[in-house]
């Protein structure tokens, strides 16, 4: 039955793609079996990340970029991530509203997802969903996330090209530019460029980018693109910038380097999570972890001893 799903995904069946993403969301065992089968069919899609604070117009931009890709005959998969409420566990996933004009286009598949509280981290899930869309034959996969926290930065490492969206009036530019965003931004987008303060924001970002580029002597200086997404203004410039970055990555060999780095990181993380999952499950048997905690609390044992003991049971000591 799982092999049927594999075949259907490779044929691009939206039903199969959708169901398998649900398995990934639920950390369902079936997902793992299936992912092994489709892995060899991934790596063809170009991965684009779009991130920014709430209210910056990301989904409108995603919609515009998708429209442009479709006009060039490219198919598009979209994974739009919105936060779950830490209190109720529920989520309002509002990105689909902006994508109405693609809703009956078979060349576009869009999936909204909530951050939930993934044991394996949000990034791991997103990578899985992206691979499924990739294997289903989409030319581009767009990953859209809200916010600028560490989780989002990790998610954005999945992308080949990352666009960071800023708007005038939110006042968090400097803040966000410090928080690791500088490292991941390949393109800056100043959206809502028709609003007051846009020019100032533009020069501010441009200044920081130049400063940063000169210090690090980077070969790619992130361009700063001005858009009014609701009116479709600046979409062409953004598409051009994305294409330029892609060309740069491909011609300089950086794309492979980037993907190699990503694969390394991803593999280590997956091993980490899998080991953690197994050990955690085993320690839960017979409430062994509970008795350990009690002993540590009573100072009968130190946590350091416990680590050695537990890890030593299954793994030879590191040299």
């Amino acid at each position: 039955m799982i092999m049927d799903y594999v075949a259907e995904i490779l044929q691009g069946s939206p039903l199969a793609v959708s169901r398998v993403i649900t398995w990934l969301e639920n950390e369902d065992e079936r997902a793992r079996v299936l992912m092994k089968e489709i892995y060899s069919h991934t790596g063809n899609a170009y991965l684009l990340g779009i991130t920014g604070s709430p209210g910056t117009g990301k989904s409108t931009l995603t919609d515009g970029v998708t429209w442009q890709f479709r006009n060039k005959g490219q198919t598009v998969g979209i994974v739009a991530v919105d936060p779950s409420s830490p209190f109720t566990g529920g989520a309002l996933l509002g990105d689909r509203i902006r994508m109405t004009r693609h809703s009956e286009d078979p060349g576009v598949f869009m999936r909204s997802m909530a951050t939930r509280g993934y044991l394996g981290g949000l990034a791991q899930f997103t990578r899985g969903a992206v691979k499924v869309l990739d294997a289903s034959g989409k030319n581009y996969v767009i990953i859209e996330t809200v916010g600028v926290g560490q989780d989002e930065v990790d998610v954005m490492r999945v992308a080949d090209t990352t666009c960071v969206v800023l708007v005038p009036g939110l006042g968090d530019v400097i803040q966000s530019m410090k928080a690791g965003i500088m490292e991941i931004a390949d393109i800056y987008v100043i959206n809502k460029y028709d609003q007051p303060g846009a020019d100032q924001l533009y020069s501010e970002v441009q200044f920081r980018v130049n400063q940063d580029a000169s210090i690090k002597d980077r070969a790619w200086v992130p361009p700063v693109i001005r858009t009014v997404a609701v009116e479709g203004k600046g979409e062409d410039d953004l598409i051009e910038a994305i294409a330029a970055h892609r060309t740069y990555l491909e011609q300089s060999g950086k794309l492979l380097e980037k993907r190699r780095e990503r694969t390394r990181e991803e593999t280590l993380q997956m091993i980490h999570h899998e080991l953690f999952r197994i050990i955690r499950a085993r320690l839960a048997e017979n409430s062994r972890i509970e008795s350990m905690v009690e002993k540590i609390m009573d100072h009968e044992l130190s946590p350091y001893n416990v680590v050695e003991e537990v890890v030593g049971e299954w793994l030879p000591p590191a040299k």
Partner: peptide, 10 residues
Amino acid sequence: FGQYRPKEFI
């Protein structure tokens, strides 16, 4: 003029 693409705020 183009069409208005609604923004929904919940």
